Amino acid sequence: MKHFKSRLISWMTRATIMLLFVSGCKPDTEIYQQVDYQKLGYILNDNPNLSTFNAAVGMTGIKNVLNGADSTVLLAPNDIFLVRLGLNASTIKEQQGLSINSFVENHVLDDYIDLASLPFFVKQKLYSKSGHTNYVSRWIKDDLAFFTVNGLRIEGQPIRGTNGIIYVLNGMLQQYEYSTVFEAIKSDFSMTLFTHAIQRAGLTSLFNDLQNTTVFVPTNQAMAAIGLGSLEKVEQANINELKKLVLYHVYPDILFVGDLSFTTNFSGSGLFTTMVTLFNGNRFMTSVDGKYGLREVKMYDGNNLQLKFYEGYYTGIYTNQLTLIDATGQQSLVDYDRKDIVAKSGTIHQIHQVLKY
């Protein structure tokens, strides 16, 4: 009996020691942690329409932010648009001249904001993590709410996660930005004659100081068509006439072509010829059956300019076109590829004819 009690005490001692050992080695945290799959990083990864942007995000530090605790807003370009630019989840990593960090940070807002809190019909300046300017507007059309960013339309409903919101864009925000509209004009070699006209007319300071402004900039070929085909010709032109010419191309408000869809009263329908980019990336000129409307604006010099805006669909692809009708009735087309160029003080659009008053 004594031997049995001794063995019992021995086993109890061992059990106590083992319990103490296990409790002493217990980890401070649980081995299995709950994963929140509603954070933006996981949502982005699981969205097949945003695979190209997701691939770019995966190459930057933003990926960690999207699975973190901080609230974030993404303006994510959809795959359909990026494929039309020749970009996909594989090729985006190989694009020369495309800074992946800049591309991603341009599409991440610097501060968290729900765009539904913005007032209607007002261009709100919001900044990207890269410091770029975004003019965001909230619209009402056919009793529905829409948002645009620098004239690009946000498609569908926002995708909400536990740490932010994803808005899907039907385009890509430009990679570069200019401090003033004058800097944007000077940066393009196809606009050098209009740049010199600004300088020759003594308007350099004005253009550097302009705020919330849109400039329709004629190409060098357009300037040549009115006899100003060289720097020497511009130097020989009458300064007062040059000043009138230049100021008739300045609209004292910000105007993005895409926003005209929400500010134009459509009054007719018909065919218009425009550049269409298909989902496979092919581009060509074609006639589109759409609708149009006219809007009159007052330019910086006090003269009026008519905006004729068309929009329509070609095989399900939304497209639009802006034509300017000057005081003489001449029509000038806004360039398909050189429009909505953003500066911190406004925007510029290239045109292929000089506006006349």
Rank of each mutant, 00 (worst) to 15 (best):
D142P: 12
T133S: 09
K141W: 14
F147V: 06
Y135M: 09
F146P: 09
K123S: 09
W139I: 06
Q124T: 14
V149K: 00
V122I: 13
G156N: 04
P158K: 05
F121G: 07
R153V: 08
S137E: 05
Y135K: 12
V122F: 06
P158Q: 11
R153I: 09
T133N: 03
E155S: 10
L126V: 14
I154T: 10
G151K: 02
H132P: 10
V149D: 04
K129T: 09
K141S: 13
S130M: 13
D142M: 14
V122A: 13
D142K: 14
S130G: 02
T148V: 00
I154K: 11
V122E: 13
K125V: 06
R160E: 11
R138D: 01
F146Y: 09
G164H: 02
R138S: 02
G161E: 13
Q157W: 14
N150T: 12
W139C: 07
N134R: 05
K129R: 08
L126D: 02
S130H: 13
K123R: 12
Q157D: 15
G151L: 00
K141L: 15
I165T: 12
V168M: 06
I140C: 04
R153T: 15
V122L: 10
T133K: 07
V168R: 11
T148W: 00
L152Y: 03
V149N: 01
L126W: 11
L126I: 15
G161L: 11
N150P: 13
S130Q: 13
I154A: 05
G156I: 08
K125E: 11
K141F: 14
T148K: 00
R160S: 08
I154E: 03
I166G: 00
S128Q: 01
R160H: 03
L126G: 07
